[in-house]
Design a protein around this nucleic acid. Structure first.
Lengths: 209, 209
DNA sequence: CGCCTCCTCGTACGCTGTTCGAGTCACTGG
DNA sequence: CCAGTGACTCGAACAGCGTACGAGGAGGCG
């Protein structure tokens, strides 16, 4: 069969290819349109074939999630633990914003190797900084929860300018009930970057080993 | 008709009743089992009837989400802005942990009246504390993102002790790759409360108007 | 040659959100 | 008194979903 070489060479269906295509599909169409059938179609296979490589659709999502965290660069170890941490976390946020569906999918335990490696790095940097015991877990969780929460909110807010417009209208209509909110408005554009950087500084300033 | 009084009195189907029942269903069975048909069954109506009161299933979720934030007590205004903020945020976290499905559902814009009222309170407290401009939005977003991220992670981790056990096993097996992580273990039980309180203190300590 | 293992897939099941059109009922204006 | 109107309910149906199952095809090995 001539097909053999071609099949083997061009399209050996693997977990890796499935995950890569899932990430592409999620990036292009969002989490609501990730479907086993659509994914299989993009891969040129039948939908049920996927189930030989993967137990369940949730597995695909878990794998895709861990895959994008592989994009987060792990800074080199230096004697500036604070620089390492901010570098890691800015990268973390960046990856989540590049793949906004990731925020919608969080909440299941993050146990993939890429996530674990970065979490390990974060903990190690904090240990090097002198944190230990309850202060260590508090610091590590505060930092990652802050990043995750920020990405979640920002990804949600960035989704639809139409909805944002409606939200501003709503806020303007209820100006009397929410005076402070209406006066300062929602962040937009570069405000998010600034707010994130500032917030991270607040947190790091307040942390003491 | 004798039914008239009864119908009118016992079961006038309203948005409020739908939302209340949705919250109950979500609390009992989780977000995966919220179905228009199941919800309607619990309400004693046909499933399609719901669509007269509500445009879409997402609307039900949005309403349920805002409803549980109505449980968050708004502290009385005092001259202790930090106390007000910590009180509000502990209550916020408590509500989310009482309804763990809420974490899984976050990410869409939070624009319900209950959420807006509490966000307004948070902003107002920070303004009273002297924050303004970019520092204000950074402080407000840092605080709420921290709370949301914490609740998200904690609710996710609390879901299944079986999964937690498997996760610990996995960590133990890879002890060599993740030494710091394996050495300190995941939080459990009251550790979460402590980590949250500490993290919040870190953040507030680092914030300057 | 036959067998075993890896891999693929068509079919089917039960369930989902939502649309549509027909119906029921309390009430109102003539 | 009664026709009509608007608020509300619902059964049937549609397209699509995740997934189980069992029938196959193909390469390697006896």
């Amino acid at each position: 069969m001539w097909l053999r070489k071609e099949r083997r060479g061009a399209a050996p269906l693997t977990r890796e290819r499935i995950v890569a295509e899932a990430v592409a599909l999620l990036d292009e169409e969002g989490v609501g349109r990730l479907t086993m059938r659509r994914l299989a179609e993009r891969l040129g296979t039948g939908s049920t074939t996927l189930y030989w490589h993967v137990d369940t659709k949730d597995d695909v999502v878990d794998l895709a999630l861990d895959a994008i965290f592989g994009e987060v660069p792990v800074p080199p170890v230096s004697d500036d633990w604070r620089g390492e941490v901010t570098g890691l976390l800015h990268g973390w946020r960046g990856a989540m914003l590049r793949h906004p569906w990731s925020a919608r999918v969080l909440g299941r335990p993050l146990l993939g190797p890429n996530v674990l490696a970065r979490t390990e790095f974060l903990h190690a940097a904090l240990v090097r900084a002198g944190f230990a015991g309850p202060a260590l877990v508090a610091a590590a969780y505060a930092l990652s929860n802050f990043v995750i929460g920020s990405a979640l909110m920002e990804a949600g807010a960035a989704e639809e300018t139409a909805e944002r417009r409606a939200a501003d209208d709503l806020l303007a209509r209820h100006r009397a009930e929410y005076p402070t909110l209406a006066a300062h408005g929602h962040p937009s554009g570069n405000d998010w970057n600034d707010a994130f950087a500032r917030g991270l500084d607040y947190l790091l300033d307040g942390m003491r080993p």
